[in-house]
Amino acid sequence: MLNARIPGSAKQEISFTVNGSPRTIHAFPMARLLDVLREDLNLIGTKEGCGEGECGSCSILMDDVLVNSCLIPALQAAGSNIVTIEGLANDDRLHPLQKAFLQCGAAQCGICTPGMILAAAHLLENTPKPSIEEIREGLSGNLCRCTGYLQIFEAVEKASRNEVAD
């Protein structure tokens, strides 16, 4: 039974910025940010792989920090600046990482890809010319079952060297 005197048992307004736009949702404060993004905001690019913060499929950027959105209560996101995979491309123009992923075969089934690209974007933001070891480390929170990672590393290296042709 919902009892308004129990904290968290009633929906409330929560506001934050998503991909540059201010958004307000009406949600339970302990609802997972993953569900809020997918269901309240229709941003279904962010995927659920495990629901326990292990696989990285749900990775998003929150205030420039790479986080697993399956572990973030909606209330914790209040006032934050969130970037999902949908926020990477500029209208029709793909982000260099997205182009590199396409060219290098870095996506097969695609379920890890949104989180993987955001993790790579976060890595390149902080380490513009990463070594292969830094790439492995930077993507170590994002599991991929299909590709064996190597073409993902190629794509990240290619993007970091600005070698991505249009």
Binding site: R136, G141, G148, I152
Partner: peptide
């Protein structure tokens, strides 16, 4: 049967192939 206790290769675990 969870990602925490079923260990599959992550990016650091694989050699060049």
């Amino acid at each position: 049967g969870q990602m925490t206790n079923y260990i599959m290769p992550a990016s650091c675990d694989l050699p060049p192939i």
